[in-house]
């Protein structure tokens, strides 16, 4: 990728982000879908305490939702955006332009980062406003977990976006696993409340590690009682997220190149017909 593509891509991503912010429907979906649900849950069960740890359910959920925001933006919002771009021909348009595809991918990454940033701020803000959450104790951990957690899901999300047939199919395929992982990965409830098998499966996915890393940044050590092995296991967090990041980055360029190379006008038309028929 050359500097020009990167520069155009950065600006493109920011523009697309502004489009989303200005789009009332999109804004409402974001606000209600993530922050609204979060606030409702906070009101509903935020008062309780997690076990005997002295940590409120509200704090626990705030941190969990932060992790889920990164996870779902990377692995659900991003793939759906790419699938939509394929269906509408945006990807094909950029294919007809010199340097278009690298700029496109840069732009998508920027947009998803902006969305993660906005939603994270809203969630933490809501958490603070509703009381209950304390500022992070360990800023350094917070920063690297956020960054590595994002890098772990964004390339993978791009791959998924290239593989799914269309945005509707993406929503159908990804929606349920997302919800299941949200429940099982220690986002809503401490993971140790789950049967051991579920704990093992959850640990295979980045969401668990994103959540664990963020809890390490936000929570007092009293909370360790509710964690697997009674430890923050930060080296494991780093290792797991890095593995996902590397896997995504290894897979992404080849797959994306293959899929974008296959884009053509007649394929676009075929897909559109199929979408209309279904």
């Amino acid at each position: 990728m050359n500097v020009t593509s990167l520069r155009i891509g950065l600006r493109r991503g920011w523009k697309e982000h502004l489009h989303l912010v200005k789009d009332r429907k999109e804004l409402l979906t974001t606000l209600i879908g993530t922050v609204g649900v979060f606030v409702l849950l906070l009101l509903w069960i935020g008062d309780g305490q997690v076990g005997e740890t002295g940590v409120s359910q509200g704090t626990f959920m705030t941190v969990g939702f932060l992790a889920f925001t990164i996870f779902s933006n990377g692995l659900m919002t991003l793939p759906m955006a790419i699938a939509t771009d394929r269906e509408e021909g945006t990807l094909l348009r950029l294919r007809t332009i010199p340097g278009g595809i690298p700029a496109y991918l840069t732009g998508r990454a920027v947009t998803v980062l902006c969305q993660i940033a906005v939603q994270s701020v809203l969630i933490v803000g809501a958490g603070l406003a509703m009381g209950g959450i304390a500022p992070p104790r360990d800023w350094l951990t917070l920063v690297w977990v956020l960054l590595l957690g994002t890098v772990a899901v964004v390339p993978l999300g791009a791959v998924i976006g290239c593989l799914v047939p269309g945005p509707k199919a993406a929503a159908g395929l990804l929606g349920l696993p997302m919800m299941v992982l949200m429940v099982t990965s220690g986002v809503m409830l401490p993971v140790t409340f789950m049967p051991e098998v579920v704990q093992w499966i959850s640990q295979a996915f980045p969401l668990y590690w994103q959540g664990l890393g963020l809890r390490a940044a936000f929570m007092p050590d009293a909370m360790l009682a509710a964690e697997i092995g009674g430890s923050w296991r930060l080296p494991w967090v780093a290792g797991a997220l890095a593995t996902w990041a590397v896997a995504g980055m290894l897979l992404a360029p080849g797959l994306i190149r293959r899929v974008t190379r296959r884009e053509s006008g007649s394929r676009l038309a075929e897909r559109r017909l199929a979408a209309q028929a279904s």
């Binding site: 771009d85 021909g89 094909l92 348009r93 007809t96 332009i97 006008g265 676009l268 038309a269």
Partner: peptide, 17 residues
Amino acid sequence: RARLGIVLQSWRDHPRW
């Protein structure tokens, strides 16, 4: 590619721009 201009059948891309 920079020397080509391409207009395909029925684009619907970049709807928000």
